[in-house]
Design a protein around this nucleic acid. Structure first.
Lengths: 348, 348
DNA sequence: TTTTAACACGAAAACGTTTTCGTGACTTCC
DNA sequence: GGAAGTCACGAAAACGTTTTCGTGTTAAAA
């Protein structure tokens, strides 16, 4: 088929030079009105659009940002993407995605693939495996090449860059306080292993709420789920673990879970064991996703404002990109997005 | 900070020409072993990587594919993306995303933004507004410029291009047949307006199952939801409509819904009205998402294999891109992905 | 010793832009 | 009528690659 038309072709066709065509299209005062009209009409007729790749090469800016996330089939992450895309689009940037699938090596490969000029900067949330290995060389290398990074949600303290995080600690704390205020006497925690930074922070929020209220935390009320468990296929294992928690602690009248799936399963198990939600046991989950919204009873959750996080991350990154001439400004900021407790039917 | 190193800089530093460096790095036989070693060592030391943009310009291929979808916070679409990303990555392509938010103009703008050389081809599912307006000029223009398009799920018959679709008709038909076989005598349909192509096809499947079993469809059992309704905020309206359906048709003992939310709400309403699922009313939904998997009772659904659809779409596109020299092959194919009935707890 | 072949490298073009600078043809001014 | 200035345009460089072709040097063959 016919390829896209270029300046060169227009120039040939109209018997002028390439520079004249370029200037005419950009409405330069250097060019006579006659020529301008002729060129512009021709360009319009053939639907001329400047080639983006050539522009990128010339300007040494691609106007594209890369976003690397652990998974995309996930309410939180897809929401972040939509936020990123929203402001990126508004400000004339494209968004290119890479999935790490929670794997360290895929994260590294993805970043290397994009860092070679394809994008101007990164927005990313690191893979669990990376958190476990604590190998951050790829971030340092990328930044040392002058490519800015904005991390969100799962961030790493050792790396100096802009960050957008959820207030995991206080979000969890407030949720647990809510349970305490609602007269729960035996509040269980369902969380992940400690190397997952957000899981750890939420756990700390739980503990802090206890402490401030003079309650001593009981280890047996804390269930740490091994999250190498595949939530898709090993759902029954998960459910079983939670069931054991309930069975060996009949006193439980409140549950705080670090994600909505755990919270939902807690409700399910409770119901199965003949307990009523929220009468007998109240449940709050972190992460406000579709599951929480449409469960019966509808789950009280800690909303993270994922969309806003994405918007904020994109804003930070683009601001940095567009102020790169005053490169002295090597001040990095960490924006904390406050959480919001959405009270629904799983609490009194 | 220090920018990425280029061939030119290596050449200067080593006092050879740019061509020599390039050849040395590509292990050309033209270059002496001495020089090769020197250059390669230097390149490795400074972590040289060829600039992708320059390569794209030279090769006139970006090795990037664009995917335009109506929304990303959506189990089906995010699953498709993950499929696309999977094979794209495996075959050395990047994926750049654009969201139309179901808007015609955003779809057009997004496509124009990417069609100017940023990508080699499109994978897309068209916006509802585009379906309603039936304005497809942007697809034709894109294709006439030699840029291939692969459509998935929501496709348009008038455009000649590769397509990947769900077998909506048969998927729906089989689901309804299942209900019939399970002795449902009064099967309701909860669907969307007709201009949504997949909604229409699923409705036809429902009708066909009736016909083949000698049952006459009753219009009052068919609820068409106006999908300009925002599922997020107007949930109660939705729920109310479904409740009315049940109340004015006490005989209903089976429900087929064209998406999982409608199905879930149907279960919820039924339960609320004192009906047991699946004892009194059996429910099947199209689209196998998280809601279905984690509802109580767990929903029987028609699985679409979204991930596989994404993989297939990417494969079709890349195959076409990489065979573009024998451009005569203007045969387009439509791949139909069969559905699968996942029987869970909402049917007997 | 002369011709030929192999070897090792450099110059330059090309991909599609934008922009700086130069220049020939007029016009204006004294 | 010559100097100076304006106008309208073209040549060329640059962004970072790859690749084709040309060329000088050396070694082998005649």
């Amino acid at each position: 088929m016919k390829r896209k038309i270029t300046l060169k072709q227009i120039a040939q066709e109209l018997d002028v030079s390439i520079s004249t065509v370029s200037k005419a299209l950009r409405n330069s005062a250097e060019i006579s009105d006659d020529t301008k009209q002729k060129v512009q009409a021709f360009a319009k007729l053939y639907n001329y659009r400047p080639n983006n790749i050539a522009l990128s090469l010339k300007n040494r800016r691609t106007n594209t940002i890369g976003i690397i996330i652990p998974e995309i089939v996930h309410h939180f992450f897809s929401n972040v993407i939509s936020g990123v895309e929203h402001v990126a689009n508004k400000r004339g940037y494209n968004v290119i995605i890479g999935l790490s699938n929670e794997s360290f090596s895929k994260e590294v490969i993805n970043m290397e693939m994009l860092a070679n000029g394809s994008i101007d900067g990164f927005i990313l949330s690191i893979a669990k495996e990376t958190q476990k290995l604590q190998d951050y060389h790829h971030f340092n290398e990328t930044m040392s090449q002058g490519m800015p990074i904005v991390m969100f949600d799962r961030v790493v303290a050792e790396i100096n860059c802009d960050k957008v995080i959820v207030d995991d600690f206080n979000g969890a704390k407030k949720a647990v306080e809510k349970l305490i205020k609602n007269n729960c006497k035996s509040i269980a925690l369902i969380t992940t292993n400690d190397y997952v930074s957000v899981g750890k922070l939420r756990t700390q929020g739980y503990l802090e709420a206890f402490e401030e209220n003079g309650i001593t935390a009981e280890p047996k009320l804390i269930l740490k789920i091994d999250d190498t468990l595949d939530n898709e296929t090993q759902l029954d294992v998960l459910e079983n673990e939670i069931e054991q928690l309930f069975k060996s602690n009949k006193s439980i009248d409140g549950v705080f879970a670090v994600n909505e799936l755990y919270a939902l399963l807690a409700m399910k198990v409770a119901t199965k064991l003949g307990l009523e939600v929220p009468e007998d046991v109240q449940v709050i989950g972190f992460t406000d996703g579709v599951l929480s919204k449409h469960s019966t009873p509808r789950l009280t959750t800690v909303r993270q404002h994922a969309h806003r996080m994405g918007e904020m991350a994109a804003q930070l990154l683009i601001d940095k990109l567009e102020s790169e001439y005053d490169t002295i400004d090597e001040e990095f900021q960490t924006v904390v997005i406050p959480t919001e407790l959405i009270e629904r039917e799983s609490t009194k």
